[in-house]
Amino acid sequence: MTDSLKRIAVLVSAGKHPVSGQPRHCRNDSLALQMGLNLANDILVLHAGESENPALQDYLALGAPQINVIPTTDNIVNNLATQLTNTDLILSGTRAENGDDSGLLPYLLATKLNLALVADVVEIKAYENKIEILQFLPKGRRRRVTVCLPALVVVHPSAAVTLNFIHARQNLGSISTLSASNFDAKHSQSDLKQWHTCPARKPIKLAASRTLTGHERLMAAISSKAKGGAVVNEGNNVEKAQVILDYLREHQLIDF
């Protein structure tokens, strides 16, 4: 806990279970919420959407003391920005799981409010006027960065916080809707092209079209049929070890 932060805000979105379609909290945003709660008791939790969404009940159980709901007019970024002008630290998840889950919103918001932004954050420590974060990088690597406030922090799914779903907290928290008149209801020109959705299917991999020689076709036919792994029964141990090394090299799994 720290007093050095004036105000912390967490953006939470309404999730949806990918199989059942049931409304739920978005885990990525919940991690951001928990990180915020670890920094301060009194945090501003913002949601752009419907206050009746059952997903918000999940956030109450996950510790949100109060959720302020902003109506969804066309320009969510502007609407959020008006609520966040006097905020030191904004936390959000990496990616929503319902609707436009491009992971762009934090960037648009940070640009709009002219905030520093760090992504893939797994840990935050707060100091006066700045935070020190630990940033996730693949293959077990991590980086420490200090960021001057005000800043927007995008939390990585592997953030080191534990989510506690506590039923009893649902009764303690509250949800309030901020009246629509405060918001910019003007249609701003949507900067994304038109999207349409269809049920998920196996994506088709992009490949160059090519004309194959007879030999290539033959090779392709043989190699695609080779299912199941190779089994090395024979040879001495050194040869066997060599086979493993060759395999690792062939697939660039080692760099020696």
Partner: peptide, 9 residues
């Protein structure tokens, strides 16, 4: 989208 249940095009 939506955790892999929809494809946005």
């Amino acid at each position: 989208q939506t955790g892999g249940s929809l494809l946005a095009i």
